[in-house]
Structure formats: structure tokens, C-alpha cells
Nucleic acid binder design. Structure first.
Lengths: 200, 200
DNA sequence: TTAAAATGTAAGTAAGCGCTTACATTTTAA
DNA sequence: TTAAAATGTAAGCGCTTACTTACATTTTAA
């Protein structure tokens, strides 16, 4: 059987349970009693690890907001044809969103509770990706392969298409799309975007 | 001075205040006391008009979820060149989102409270627009002006670009974009999308 | 082995919430 | 004008919540 190290600290168990419940029920809807129960500890222990529910919430944000490194994609991508590169970026982006779906749910619902903090997380999350993608476009423009256009707007448009697809599927509908459908959508979106940006 | 009829029923005042507070603070964060105060009535009156907070919330959803008629755009659009038509659709879509921003905020945060109901509202809101746009694409494809592509996916991609732009600007950042910036974004997005869909 | 650190059990506190009751006041309409 | 309908004031009830206190038990480490 699995021989992984499955020993979690109390703190980690609480943070994981809190992430799950804040995501599913919102900050006010998730109770400390319920979080403790899901974590498998006593409620009083939760308050010995975190001075308040509010501080626990902030620690959840801090703990699970580290950004994924899409930057590392660049070398992988530069060798691929344009459309394949875009498809790969899209797939990786969607995977990343999926792996962070609890955090995204929390950020969407608790925007009003921590505007600056959540805004900051969003920026560090999206801006990195968008700027990387914009640079990729710029390099292809300089090589004469792409039309002239505002690279950052284009990057935003590209990610926007897929973000709203993700949002509609996963957040709104809770649908699990079949892999074939997903690939079809990516192909169609990429096709339109590529057709609109390549130099003919 | 304005000579409009500004006489609102108690019910209307409560519904408007509830929309505002549910949107800003969420269902659990908005208290009936606060809603009544904002409406300028006594809390007990709120409970004489609505049997419970939950029923009030449902009535807010029912009252403010009627869909805008983008369908009426079609005749206006058919006479325009493709890119101008797309730009007009995008502008109208963004205006509609803006005018419904409170409802959109509520739907984003309270998805877990009323999954089926909110899902239904979203569908009647977006599906109408998407299907209308898909039909427009189909007619241009049949006329030989556009490439072959899945018209519904394309419509989703188009609205998705603008929805996520709206979401980033209005919901995330609370930014009021200058009109010039808005038009620039619409132009760039439309340009890319049009380039990827027209037959060369 | 043993002292200290971490966790559990149990009970409770203070505050806020949705909602109700009783009664006074105002508004509406025949 | 007057009865009925709508609204206000004030008090409070029952419940839940975040959080605390006191003490017993378990786990950790020198």
C-alpha cells in the first residue's frame, strides 16, 4: 500500500479543513465547530493554534495562495508550432485553475471581506501568467510570425476565454466535462484566437 | 425638478435594500435589521411583508433576474459590417452586465446556497445571448462570409472574453475604466476574434 | 522515567441573530 | 368621518456563534 508520509500537524489539518469549508459555505457559513470536527480535533485546539476565526481565515489565504509557475512553460513552448503552444498553455491554465478551485471559490465569494488582500492574490496569480504570455506574443511578433496588436490585451483575452469557460463549468455547474469535450473546446478557442493573431 | 413618480411600496423599498446588502455582504452577512434600516422601515414590517429572511432572498432573486433582451439587437446588427456588429454586441453585453452587477455579485457568492435556482437564472441569462449570437454566426457562415466553426463554442468564447474582462474590472478591482480604455479593449478583442472567424 | 508540552472534555459566557408579541400610531379608503 | 389596514415602538425569546476557563489525559522528548 501507499508508503507516503501521511503525518500532518494539527495546524495543517485545521488549515485543510478550513479551506474546504470556507470554500463550500463561505466565511460566515463555516463554523469553527464544524472545521474542528472535519479536521478531527477539538474546537478548543483550533483556538489554541489560531487566535480567532478571522486569523485562521487569513492563514488559509496565505497558505494556499502561492502561485503556480507557468513561467517554466516558456522553454517547452518555444519549440512548438503556434497553435500547439497555445493549446498547451490553455490546458495548463485550466489544470492550474482546477487544482486551486477551493481558493478561487473563496476569492469569488469573500471579495468584500478582504478586498485588498484578495485583490493582491488575484494579481499575483493572473498578472504573472498574463505577462508571460504577452512576452511570448511579443517574441513572435518580433520574429514576424504574428500581426501587430497589444500583447497584454491579447493575453487577457486569451486567458479570459478559458477562465470563463472554467468558471461556467466548474463553479457554476459543477460539471465534470469529459476529456474529449475539453479538448474540443480548447481546439476551437485556440483556432479562433490563432486565426486572429497570426500574420497571413 | 424631476417630476417622476418616486413613490415606492414598502415591499419595493425592502427588495431594493435587500438587493444592495445581499450583494455587498452576502446572505449571512446582511442582517434583517440592517436591511430594514436601509429601506427606511421598521424591522417588524419587513417580516410582515416577507415571512422569513430566506423568502426575502428568494424574492430578490425572482425580482431582479429578468433577462435583458439582446435579441432585439439582431435587426440592428444585420446591416452592420462584421466587426462593427461584434463591437456593438460587446458594448451592449458589458452595459447589461454593469446594470445587473448586484445580481451578478449575489449569484457569484451564493451559488452554494441555491445551486439549482442560481444555475437556472444564469442559464436563462447567458444561454439566450449565446444562442442568439450563434445564430448570427450561422447566418454569416451560410452567406459564405465566415469560416466553418462550431458557432456555439465561438459565441461562448466571445462572451467569455468580455465577461472575464468585466469580472476583473468591476468585481475584482471595482475599477471604473475610462470610456476610451473600454473602447480600446473592445476594439482589440473584436479584432482578434473577427480575424479568427472571417473567411480570407 | 518523567516533566513539559499538546490535546481532549465539559461547561459556560456574552453577543448577535432571526423572528414574535403586544400595543400605539398613522395612513388609507368607503 | 370613521373603521380597517398598514406601519411603528419596544421588549424579548430561543438559538447559534465565537471564544474561554478549568481540569483531565495523552504525547513528546531529555
Amino acid at each position: 500500500m501507499g508508503s507516503e508520509d501521511k503525518t500532518f500537524t494539527t495546524r495543517e489539518k485545521v488549515l485543510a479543513a478550513a479551506l474546504q469549508l470556507f470554500s463550500a459555505k463561505g466565511y460566515l457559513g463555516a463554523t469553527t465547530k464544524e472545521i474542528a470536527k472535519l479536521a478531527g480535533i477539538a474546537e478548543v485546539t483550533l483556538f489554541r493554534q489560531f487566535s480567532s476565526k478571522e486569523q485562521l481565515f487569513e492563514e488559509v489565504l496565505n497558505t494556499y495562495s502561492f502561485l503556480p509557475k507557468i513561467k517554466s512553460l516558456i522553454p517547452e513552448i518555444e519549440k512548438l508550432p503556434y497553435e500547439e503552444a497555445l493549446a498547451l498553455i490553455a490546458m495548463r491554465f485550466l489544470e492550474t485553475l482546477k487544482s486551486r478551485i477551493e481558493m478561487i471559490r473563496i476569492m469569488q465569494s469573500e471579495m468584500s471581506r478582504y478586498p485588498e488582500k484578495i485583490h493582491k492574490i488575484y494579481n499575483s496569480f493572473l498578472d504573472g501568467i498574463i505577462k508571460t504570455l504577452a512576452l511570448y506574443f511579443k517574441s513572435l511578433q518580433d520574429a514576424g510570425a504574428l500581426k501587430e496588436f497589444n500583447t497584454e490585451y491579447a493575453a487577457r483575452a486569451f486567458m479570459g476565454m478559458f477562465y470563463s469557460f472554467f468558471s461556467a463549468q466548474e463553479i457554476l455547474l459543477g460539471k465534470k466535462y469529459r476529456k474529449a469535450d475539453l479538448e474540443l473546446v480548447v481546439k476551437e478557442y485556440v483556432n479562433i484566437f490563432a486565426g486572429g493573431t497570426v500574420k497571413k
